[in-house]
Design a protein around this nucleic acid. Sequence first.
DNA 1: AACGATACGGAGAGTGTCTCCGTTTAGCAA
DNA 2: TTGCTAAACGGAGACACTCTCCGTATCGTT
Lengths: 184, 184
Amino acid sequence: MRADAKRNRDRIVEVARLVFREQGYDAPLDEIAKRAEVGAGTLYRHFPTRDDLVDAVMQSWVDSVDTAVDKALAHEGDGRAVLMAWLETYVGLISLHRGGPAKITTAMGDPESPIRSKCQVLAGANQRVIERLTDDGVLRDGVEPLQLCRLVGGVATVADQSELDAPTVRSLLEVVADGLVRQP
Amino acid sequence: MRADAKRNRDRIVEVARLVFREQGYDAPLDEIAKRAEVGAGTLYRHFPTRDDLVDAVMQSWVDSVDTAVDKALAHEGDGRAVLMAWLETYVGLISLHRGGPAKITTAMGDPESPIRSKCQVLAGANQRVIERLTDDGVLRDGVEPLQLCRLVGGVATVADQSELDAPTVRSLLEVVADGLVRQP
DNA sequence: AACGATACGGAGAGTGTCTCCGTTTAGCAA
DNA sequence: TTGCTAAACGGAGACACTCTCCGTATCGTT
């Protein structure tokens, strides 16, 4: 890739992150192009669809998912507390910008979505948590990573759209957590 | 309201229901105006925002919610089975058209939304189910109607966007149901 | 320095939303 | 029936956003 191309690409992603933070993932792409001081053509050449751009912006946290899992698994307390820690971390990750949860959950159902790779990362993270907690006898059998993605994605989507506060989100996640743990 | 106005209004709603069924709640409003053989101005005078129109289309099932609750509560089986019957009914109600769950859940967080009245009806329905199942000792204490709206709305939204099949949706609802019932 | 490949920019076409205002019509009163 | 007025109509067009096309500019190599 030519040097000027890379320069432009990087600047677009940088500006996009800013604009998405301000306005959510539905922000007009033309504004991003304008603020990045490139033509619309340049933006669309680098990122043919909005989701390609969203994907590039999301890339930053992908690398931190693994350490987030480690951190949640190291949470002190019983198995359910560990699970809750992870669920809250998960919601936080995908709720970084407004519209994020919806984007992720939609992508989960669309094999063509560029954001799909992010879903795989999240599913992988869930996989790790599930394995650990199943071994510990905390989770009931048969919990699938995708199932967890969907349940928590659903809660995060509602929370994002209704701008719920943290305690309210926690009360929803607690129902999910209780539904997942092995019934005593 | 003048007779011709009512005639047009009714025809718009009728056509809208058809178009929404075909294309989901994101269908272009101009097409609805065209197919209803009215000018765009007429459509927007009767329904200033898309949600006003969506609300009018949804009005039809509002009246059937109460009987749906009765039916679910009459479901044979233990308390958990009754709860599951209701959850599935609920998802079915709000998933009538593509985009419906998202519309409802968004409206739930927006006090200004015209669809808000529909949410109240659904919350009322949940209230009835909660009261009955709490009396029976099935549900744990402190389950709120809104909480149920959000949890099931989240599941329905994901299911709608990912076009999940019934068994998959059921598996998600079962986790929610297990999280809601009194732990033995 | 010259050249070909690569990338740029922004005008403009396409699509959907929504308003404005000149024209038409329903319904009432004389 | 006729005339009148408030209510309702319709659709052209302004606006907003998406996305493409192609003439122009730049990079990096020979």
